[in-house]
C-alpha cells in the first residue's frame, strides 16, 4: 500500500484555483520532495493532505485513510511541521514536546523515553529547559521536528523546514531528518526551494507550478530527461548578427537560449563544445567575456519545466535570528 495516494485533488479560493487536479503516490519509507516557486500551491496541497483544508474536489489517501471522510484516523498517523514557526515561544523546549505528547494521547510511561530520545536526535538535550524564545531559528525548527515526531507518526509532512535558515543550520536539519529516518519506519513528504537539498535527500521529486504537476521522477532521471549533460553560460562582446545560429551549429550543442549578450547553451559534451566555442569566437573576432561550464543540476530541470529560475522566485521569508547558533 502507498503511504500517500493523491487523487485529482483540487483547491479553489473563490475563482482562483491554487491546486488544479494533482495526482501522485508516495511509497512507504520514501522521502518525497515537492518543489515549486512561491505561490505554486505547495502549502495548499500539504494543508489538504494533513486535513487542515478541505479539498474543493478530488481526495487523497494518507496511510490508507481518506482525508475527507476519515480525518481522525489520518491525524493519528501523521506528524506535521507547518511553514510558519509555530512552537510556543513562552514554553520551554521540553514543555512544547510534553503538551503535544498529551494532545496525541501518548501514554505517560512512554512520554519521557520518547521525549528524551527525540531531544537527543535533534541535539537539543542540553537546551530542554530553555524557553523557545531564547533559541535561534535553526534550533526552533529542530524543536518543531521533535514535536512533530513525539507520537511516533508513520508519515511526516514538512513545509519548507529549512527556509530562512543559514547554510549550516540547513545542513544540520537535513542530516537530522536523514538520521531519524534511518532509525524508524517513516515516510517523509517535504517541500523546499533548495534544489541542492532536494537533489541529495529526496528519493523522488515532484515539480509543481501554478497548481499543476509539471514533472515527477527521481532526481537522477529528471536531470537525464532534459537536453544536454552540461550547461555552458557565456557572455560575448560584441554579439554579431546570427550568433545564436553559429552557436547552435557547434558540436554537441542541443539548445541555445540567448539573454542579451549572455547565452545558455545545453551540450551533450561540455569540453568539446567549449573548445569549439573558443575557436568560433576567435574567428569571428568576438571576445568571450565570461564562460562557465557546469553539469546539469536540478536548477536547470526546474527552469526547463517552469520557465523560471528558482532563485528569482525565492521566498522573501524573514531572516531568522541566528545569533545563538555558535554553540
Amino acid at each position: 500500500m502507498d503511504a500517500i495516494d493523491v487523487r485529482q485533488i483540487v483547491k479553489s479560493f473563490g475563482d482562483f484555483t491554487a491546486v488544479k487536479g494533482i495526482s501522485f503516490t508516495v511509497g512507504e519509507g520514501e522521502i518525497f520532495g515537492l518543489l515549486g516557486p512561491n505561490g505554486a500551491g505547495k502549502s495548499t496541497l500539504i494543508r489538504m493532505l494533513v486535513t487542515l483544508l478541505p479539498p474543493t474536489a478530488g481526495t487523497a489517501l494518507v496511510g490508507g485513510f481518506d482525508i475527507v471522510t476519515h480525518q481522525d484516523q489520518v491525524r493519528r498517523l501523521i506528524g506535521v511541521i507547518p511553514q510558519a514557526m509555530t512552537s510556543d515561544t513562552e514554553l520551554s523546549v521540553e514543555e512544547n514536546l510534553l503538551i503535544f505528547a498529551k494532545l496525541y494521547g501518548v501514554p505517560r510511561e512512554k512520554r519521557k523515553r520518547l521525549i528524551d530520545d527525540l531531544l537527543a536526535a535533534v541535539e537539543l538535550t542540553q537546551w530542554r529547559d530553555k524557553q523557545v524564545r531564547q533559541l535561534s531559528g535553526g534550533m526552533r525548527r529542530r524543536v518543531e521536528i521533535a514535536r512533530g515526531l513525539v507520537h511516533e507518526p508513520k508519515i511526516f509532512f514538512l513545509d519548507e523546514p529549512t527556509t530562512g535558515l543559514d547554510p549550516v543550520s540547513r545542513v544540520a536539519v537535513w542530516e537530522m531528518l536523514r538520521k531519524i529516518k534511518a532509525e524508524r519506519d517513516l515516510t517523509i513528504l517535504i517541500t523546499t526551494h533548495y534544489m541542492d537539498e532536494a537533489d541529495k535527500l529526496c528519493d523522488r521529486i515532484a515539480i509543481v507550478d501554478h497548481g499543476e504537476l509539471k514533472a515527477l521522477d527521481t532526481p537522477g532521471r529528471l536531470k537525464a530527461a532534459i537536453p544536454g549533460k552540461n550547461v555552458l553560460e557565456a557572455s560575448f562582446a560584441p554579439v554579431p548578427e546570427g550568433w545564436t545560429a553559429t552557436l547552435q551549429a557547434l558540436p554537441s550543442v542541443e539548445g541555445v537560449t540567448p539573454h542579451d549578450n549572455i547565452f545558455r547553451i545545453a551540450s551533450g559534451n561540455g569540453p568539446a563544445t567549449t573548445m569549439a566555442l573558443m575557436s568560433a569566437a576567435a574567428q569571428a573576432n568576438v571576445t568571450v567575456q565570461s564562460l562557465s561550464v557546469q553539469s546539469t543540476t536540478l536548477d536547470d530541470v526546474f527552469v526547463h519545466y517552469t520557465g523560471r529560475a528558482l532563485r528569482d522566485a525565492l521566498h522573501d521569508a524573514p531572516r531568522l535570528d541566528i545569533s545563538h547558533m555558535r554553540r
Binding site: 487542515l52 481522525d72 491525524r75 510558519a84 509555530t86
Partner: peptide, 14 residues
Amino acid sequence: ARGLHEGYLVTPIT
C-alpha cells in the same frame, strides 16, 4: 494569527 492553532488542528483533538 501566529499559526499556533494550526499545530492543534493537525492533532486528533476533537
